[in-house]
């Protein structure tokens, strides 16, 4: 029951962000909102599929169909961050090599419970997302700029950390009760998802102000 309530709350949050992103896309017709709509849309379809499956069949999906929708949302968030940064696609620094060390390590750990394909895909998308957000923060730290893009990178890193926390929790805690930390972390994740929308909105408003000033 708690799982269904948690999923419904997250679905409502996603639906709100998706609708608002679509409104922005219709008004502005730019790539940022197209990518953000696809980010929320992908997550929304995955969540909707999971919830409907639970409600209709009282079990969770057997194959990785909803996972694909979640992975696609990681991909579009990565593309949105890359697009907003306006920087080169790839730039190597030794410290960035720690990201795949962490994600591949976690991937091997999760393979004890989940299937191989799903875990490899998750690790690949998470590596890209953490790299982009980490690099964004790194660039801002060097230049000393504290803008909304920096906040977006921070929120994205938090989002990745919460996703990993959810995966770790689901390996050790089972049970459909409020004592399971999974639901609390999932609620924080919903808040982060909404916060990402408003940060991108502020970022775009800031960009427009700059453009109109020029």
């Amino acid at each position: 029951m708690i799982e269904k309530i948690d999923n419904t709350i997250q679905l409502a949050g996603l639906l709100l962000c998706f609708a608002l992103s679509l409104v922005q896309l219709i008004r502005k017709r730019n790539m940022t909102w197209e990518l953000m709509s696809l980010f929320y849309g992908g997550f929304l379809f995955g969540e909707l599929y999971w919830l409907l499956y639970l409600l209709l069949y009282d079990e969770t999906p057997r194959f990785i169909t909803p996972d694909m929708a979640w992975y696609v949302s990681y991909l579009f968030l990565f593309l949105a961050l890359q697009y907003l940064s306006g920087e080169r696609f790839f730039k190597f620094r030794p410290v960035y090599a720690l990201i795949p060390v962490f994600t591949v390590g976690m991937c091997v750990f999760f393979m004890q419970w989940g299937d191989y394909v799903s875990n490899i895909l998750a690790a690949g998308f998470m590596t890209a997302l953490i790299y982009r957000a980490g690099r964004g923060l790194d660039e801002r730290r060097k230049s000393g700029v504290r803008d909304h893009y920096r906040t977006l990178c921070l929120l994205t890193l938090l989002y990745c950390a919460l996703e990993y926390a959810l995966w770790i929790i689901s390996c050790f805690w089972m049970g459909d009760s409020l004592l399971n930390p999974y639901f609390w972390v999932d609620l924080i994740l919903t808040v982060i998802l909404v916060a990402i929308f408003f940060t991108v909105l502020k970022l775009e408003m800031q960009k427009e102000e700059k453009e109109s000033a020029v």
Binding site: Y49, A69, Y71, V72
Partner: peptide
């Protein structure tokens, strides 16, 4: 980069939409 990664992403989004419809 948007064309290459976007193609993968859009394909997977259409799979998710189709899956919700079938369900």
């Amino acid at each position: 980069y948007l064309r290459v990664l976007g193609t993968v992403g859009l394909f997977l989004t259409s799979v998710a939409y189709h899956a919700v419809y079938n369900l």
